[in-house]
Design a protein around this nucleic acid. Structure first.
Length: 638
RNA sequence: GCCCUUUUAGCUCAGCGGUAGAGCGCGUCCUUGGUAAGGACGAGGUCGCCGGUUCAAGCCCGGCAAAGGGCUCCA
């Protein structure tokens, strides 16, 4: 008998020659049925793998993250099997699992959504045949190359893999793969082909364009249904749809990627900026505004003319070339140089909410998330080397105050020196260490992206997730060793010498447009009162009540509260319905009773009507809720 | 920029090679109704733009533009 150890440290006796599947069977038949793979001594293996005495074994199911990846990777093989059956000329390349499902990239394949049905049918027939998967180990590169002689992409992969070459076979289909795999393809019971797109071989736009097919699979039809339902729900939060429905913003074909912010959108925008300014004043920032367009020499000095030219809009007048700013920093540098700073004046925290323009590739544009004209809530902090850590900590804390106001969850990424970069080693070390130690002290976990920094310095990025699960970079903290040099910035130190300041760029909303879009999706356009375009709506019951409704509207307005009156000749039911659908925070019907005695029945967004609120008290409550930027309604609170 | 898809009334969407449709919205009138759709009538369209095929094009073909999903890139 052999003995293996389970994750809970319990020990199980097995017949010699038992597999991971046998072990699962011994634990419970249900587990065996759902076993996707096994982790044996920290290595993911097939459940058909034979166990040795003393092995530490963990059975993986779809419920484990690792199990999901294996399940989806196995599903990618099934997809590739179906596709190669239907399109024999298609050459499978790679097919990894992703966060939600998996994709497979094919060369020599042309498909559109119309083919999805056929592909799904073929997949179904593969699932019905319920092939077992078999591991094939190649003794040498040569043997593997022969197996994939008709697929140059697989051959390229094989050539880059010296040892441990293996493949998996299911029915007639063999694919290069390290594994492990689900034991029988039928486990991937519920399959859905989702979308197709182009992709480049090895992610390089210089390489062949491949056809990518995205799909998802589950061990249970109910899980698939739940997933599809969740996707439907997420689509209802799409900021592009809500932005149109609520009149927040629009795009015109005369300015692709250049948003028009409408009145309701401007209300939110202005509230965001008011909140932002309050916090920045508290944190001792100053604010400037620099021109939208500056002469070519400036961009030559900053390096943009050489490094960023293809993204810049330019204009020529009287034989002089100007560029519309793609970034605020060069203007900020000129501001700094206007002053003679001493070490006593540092750090200088100079904010600028500037409208920048970048010519993004047409295919990259996406609603308000990716535009060509946007506003960055930039700030440049000029400091002494000894300020680095505390300044970064200050920015991290300020960012947290902003994101937590909206209950947004975010994650941090630290990116270090890329291969192509400028600057001295000791400067990179100083600045990267500054970022790292600030992050450590801040105490929030972060992801490390080695070599992913800007060419001029390391950075910390804040990422926030949208309604359909994509993450977007919002805030960023970037140390810059290049611009102070290029612009010959200086300050006078204690010894009276002119020395170079350290400079960092930072943005917290990142792009106001993008952050705005994230908020629309986050709240599904049901904004908290302080952001809400219409906070209070009065609904006169009959024409004779218009006068009272207008009086109250004006009283609200005098307190800075955004109120309106629905003076249409619709029924009261219809007016209530409209106000509810518009997510007005407080809905107040004005009829004979209210005219006789100013006590309101206040309808809240949860459709409850709270009676007996004197008008004066209502005003106070709304005002308190507004100025405190509370996300909880004050009426009907207790 | 590349691959795939889409573009018909203000909005959401039907539409079969043979003179353009619905619902909502909008306008006028009736109704003055107490917390999620009162009623009648009416006005809105060079079917994204430019070419081609055809006796005939919203529909077929080509180009361009914009939008959507990805790739690449990035706030």
């Amino acid at each position: 008998m052999i003995q293996v150890t389970l994750p809970d440290a319990s020990q199980i006796q097995l017949e010699p020659g038992s597999t991971a599947f046998d072990l699962a069977m011994k634990i419970s038949p249900g587990l065996a049925r759902n076993a996707v793979a096994a982790v044996i001594n920290n290595e993911a293996r097939d459940v058909s793998r034979t166990l040795q005495d003393g092995d530490k074994v963990r059975i993986l199911t779809f419920n484990d993250d690792e199990g999901k990846r294996i399940f989806w990777h196995s599903s990618a093989h099934i997809l590739a099997q179906a596709v190669t059956r239907l399109f024999p000329e298609a050459k499978p390349t790679i097919g990894p699992p992703i966060e939600q499902g998996f994709f497979y990239d094919f060369a020599d394949l042309l498909v559109s959504e119309e083919d999805f049905d056929r592909i799904e049918k073929e997949i179904q027939s593969i699932l019905n045949d319920n092939y077992e998967t078999h591991r094939i180990e190649y003794p040498s590169q040569q043997v593997a190359l022969e197996e994939f002689s008709n697929n140059p992409f697989k051959r390229e992969l094989i050539e880059n893999l010296e040892e441990g070459l293996s493949a998996y076979r299911q029915g007639e289909f063999v694919d290069l793969c390290t594994g492990p795999h689900i034991p029988k393809v039928g486990m991937a019971k519920a399959f859905k082909v989702l979308k197709t797109s182009g992709a480049y071989w090895r992610g390089d736009s210089a390489n062949t364009q491949l056809t990518r097919i995205y799909a998802i699979s589950f061990p249970d039809k109910k899980l698939l249904k739940a997933y599809l339902h969740q996707m439907e729900e997420a689509k209802k939060r799409d900021h592009r749809i809500l932005g149109k429905r609520f009149g927040l913003f629009s795009f015109q074909k005369e300015g692709p990627g250049m948003p028009f912010i409408h009145p309701a959108g401007m209300v939110i925008w202005n509230e965001l900026m008011a909140f932002w300014r309050e916090l920045h004043i508290e944190d001792d920032y100053t604010e400037i505004k620099t021109p939208a367009m500056l002469g070519r020499e400036l961009w030559e000095t900053s390096g943009h003319w050489h490094n960023y030219r293809e993204n810049m809009y330019t204009s020529e007048i009287e034989e002089k070339i100007f560029a519309i700013k793609p970034m605020n920093c060069p203007g900020g540098m000129l501001f700094y140089k206007e002053n003679q700073f001493s070490y006593r004046d540092l750090p200088q925290r100079v904010a600028e909410v500037g409208n920048v323009h970048r010519h993004e590739m047409s295919g990259a544009l996406s609603g308000m998330f990716r535009v060509r004209s946007f506003h960055q809530d930039d700030a440049h902090i000029f400091m002494k080397p000894t300020d680095i850590k505390s300044e970064i900590l200050g920015v991290l804390r300020l960012a947290h105050r902003i994101y937590s106001q909206f209950d947004l969850s975010y994650h941090l990424e630290l990116s270090t020196r890329p291969e192509k970069s400028i600057g001295r080693d000791e400067d990179w070390e100083l600045t990267t260490e500054g970022l790292r130690s600030a992050l450590e002290e801040y105490g929030m976990p972060y992801q490390l992206n080695e070599g992913d920094g800007a060419f001029y310095g390391p950075k910390i990025d804040f990422h926030i997730r949208d309604a359909i699960g994509r993450t977007w970079q919002c805030g960023t903290i970037q140390l810059d060793m290049s611009l102070p040099e290029r612009f010959d910035l200086g300050y006078i130190n204690e010894e009276g010498e002119r020395v170079r300041p350290i400079m960092l760029h930072r943005a917290l909303y990142g792009s106001i447009e993008r952050f705005f879009a994230i908020l629309v999706e986050h709240y599904a356009a049901k904004f908290p009162l302080w952001l809400s375009p219409v906070q209070v709506r009065f609904l006169p019951v009959a024409d004779r009540h218009h006068e009272q409704a207008q009086k109250w509207r004006l009283a609200c307005k005098a307190q800075g509260i955004r109120a309106d009156v629905d003076a249409s000749s619709e029924s009261i039911n219809k007016k209530v319905r409209n106000a509810q659908l518009e997510h007005v925070n407080y809905i107040i019907v004005v009829g004979d009773r209210e005219v006789a005695d100013p006590v309101l029945s206040v309808r809240t967004r949860d459709t409850h009507v709270h009676g007996g609120v004197p008008f004066g008290q209502f005003l106070e409550m709304v005002q308190r809720e507004y100025t405190s930027r509370s996300s909880q309604p004050s009426v009907g609170a207790q």
